[in-house]
Design a protein around this nucleic acid. Structure first.
Length: 541
RNA sequence: GAGCCCGUAGCUCAGCGGUAGAGCAUUCGACUUUUAAUCGAAUGGCCCUGGGUUCGAAUCCCAGCGGGCUCACCA
């Protein structure tokens, strides 16, 4: 949806994706196009950081497109030719995998039995993950690129400058690794293992390397082309940049040193390394690094259970160079921040607004939720929202016009709020038994609800709520809940309502109970009271 | 050892050269048949310290102090 309004002055936009786009623009204008890359180690499954990296790169790319009008591509590069180092914990057929240690992931059978190789399986998972969010990208398999010859010219070039490349890496290595290091990792012709061995000889003229199997002592001469040799990590990155002409790639700050070395190698090969962007890592609630093995922090599955993906995008948009804590409490905050930006975007579709980037420069056209997500979460616990319909019942008082059909975003938030209630609030409820003194009031309420059940169900909701509230008061108009009012008449003390919440809802606070009965159902409340009275008897016995 | 991030209200943080802000917490008030959500208001800050640039600095630069992270094995 292009805007009729005057084109913004792209050069003046301060949003960081535009600042990044301005860094790539000069070199891209020389080439007439730009190549963005994000890379993956295929040994692990896609995670919240994967989402962040692709989302952020996509925003830069989109800003680039708007600003320059030049074509661009985003390739998602999977390093699936990497050798399997250890058997992952969370897969079947571990014994089978153990027999293939050291071989490229694409040369190992799929332990899940669904794809032609373990690498192909993980690639499929990665693609499904990215597709679920609607990212626009081209998938690239390292194995395919090596075998098809797309890296051949670059590999031969690296062979020419082998010693110079090696000399860049050597000073960064410990003595023992230094002895065996080579930027080339030949695939063993018989075992298929990715070999980490020194090159005894490099033969640029024939395009081969000569090395020795440390176990058998056998010497091999292997062509560096055609997928017979893979480049070692930092050299591999540089090779890819050089061969494909990558213009932009971001990475976490743990890779700062790798970026530096890979850039140096890329220059030795003869190309300007891509514009790089370093983002900070995510920390958990206590400021510790999030690691999959520790299980701290949040998984993307958890986030998406309690909030829509747009809110995660909002979180990822904010200040990539700053370390941020990623734990449960930031979810509602991110949702509401996103909602505010979205509303602002509707009034002013400015590229300085994060929501502009999250929505690819378009303005969403469904109505804004009339309440904040924080309020929905609060309301969900207060009203014991076990089902979305209960939350909708109470929402109707704020926004009579809002329905799941007319307010799709609100509908999604309601679903999330109910899950939040189920997972975090419901388990903490403590249902106490009514005391002997309180029992008569509960019995009276039970009796009147049974008596009037059919009558109440026939009423329209508003009237039913009011009638039910009257019954609640009548039931409470007895000891120990009688309390003199300001005008001297006897009224019902708040202890009656507290007792209701504690005994029937397992909470200290709750909704106006007549309204709750109307939404929860008379029959349901009758069951609650019956259950509570039974508990009381059990406790008394 | 090398590098990065952060020090702003009680807590979590926003603010990126022009009168110190938000949410939560606290206090008070409104609303409700006397409970909740909600709404309104108030309280609350040497913007870590010391220099520098500037008419003007929370903001930019330098130094220091404090907190934390990452890389120095592998990708």
């Amino acid at each position: 949806m292009p805007h009729a309004a005057a084109a913004p002055d792209w050069a003046a936009i301060r949003a960081w994706p535009f600042e990044e786009a301005r860094r790539v623009a000069p070199r891209a204008e020389r080439k007439g196009h730009a190549l963005f890359e994000t890379g993956y180690g295929p040994s692990g499954l896609p995670h919240i950081g994967t989402f962040g990296e692709v989302a952020r790169t996509t925003w830069v790319r989109h800003a680039f497109t708007r600003m320059t009008g030049l074509p661009s591509r985003l390739i998602a590069f999977s390093d699936d030719m990497d050798g399997l180092r250890k058997v992952p914990d969370n897969v079947p057929n571990k014994e089978m995998l153990a027999r293939h240690l050291g071989r490229p992931l694409t040369a190992i059978p799929d332990p899940f039995g669904t794809h032609e190789s373990f690498g192909a399986h993980n690639n499929a998972r990665l693609r499904a993950f990215l597709d679920a969010f609607g990212f626009e990208y081209e998938f690239a398999s390292s194995t395919d690129y090596y075998r098809s010859g797309r890296f051949d010219a670059a590999l031969l070039r690296m062979l020419e400058v082998h010693d110079a490349v090696r000399d860049v890496i050597l000073p960064t290595l410990g003595p023992e690794r230094r002895a065996t290091y080579s930027p080339f990792l030949p695939i063993h012709p018989r075992t298929g293992v990715v070999m980490q061995v020194p090159m005894e000889e490099t033969r640029p003229a024939s395009g081969t390397v000569v090395w020795r199997d440390p176990d058998s002592g056998e010497r091999f001469e292997t062509p560096v082309t055609g997928g017979h040799v893979k480049a070692q990590w930092k050299a591999d990155w540089a090779l890819r940049w050089f061969a494909l002409g990558v213009d932009y790639e971001m990475s976490g700050k743990d890779l700062i040193d790798s970026v530096r070395l890979s850039s140096a190698i890329c220059r030795i090969l003869g190309a300007e390394p891509p514009v790089s962007f370093t983002y900070e890592l995510f920390l958990d609630e206590h400021g510790q690094k999030i690691s999959k093995s520790k299980g701290n922090g949040l998984t993307i599955e958890e986030w998406l259970r309690y909030a829509p993906p747009e809110s995660l995008a909002q979180f990822m948009y904010n200040a990539p160079p700053r370390a941020k804590r990623l734990y449960f409490d930031v979810i509602p905050r991110s949702v509401d921040e996103y909602l505010q930006n979205r509303e602002r975007l509707r009034r002013d579709p400015s590229p300085e607004n994060p929501a502009w980037h999250i929505h690819g420069g378009l303005v969403p056209n469904d109505p804004e939720p009339p309440v904040s997500f924080a309020m929905l979460l609060n309301l969900a616990s207060v009203v014991n929202a076990e089902e979305p319909s209960m939350l909708w019942g109470f929402l109707r008082r704020y926004a009579p016009e809002a329905t799941p059909e007319s307010h799709p975003m609100l509908a999604r938030l309601v679903e999330h709020a109910v899950l939040y209630f189920r997972d975090f609030v419901a388990p903490t409820r403590v249902f106490r038994a009514p005391t002997a003194a309180e029992r008569p009031a509960f019995e009276a309420l039970l009796a009147s609800l049974r008596d009037r059940a059919a009558d109440l169900e026939a009423m329209p909701p508003e009237e039913r709520a009011k009638a039910a509230q009257d019954l609640v008061y009548d039931a409470g108009r007895r000891e120990p809940f009688l309390e003199p009012q300001k005008d001297g008449r006897m009224g019902v003390s708040r202890a009656w309502f507290s007792a209701i919440y504690q005994v029937l809802l397992g909470q200290q606070e709750g909704p106006r109970f007549g309204g709750f009965i109307a939404l929860y159902g008379v029959g349901g409340v009758i069951s609650l009271i019956e259950g509570a009275l039974a508990r009381g008897e059990g406790a008394a016995a």
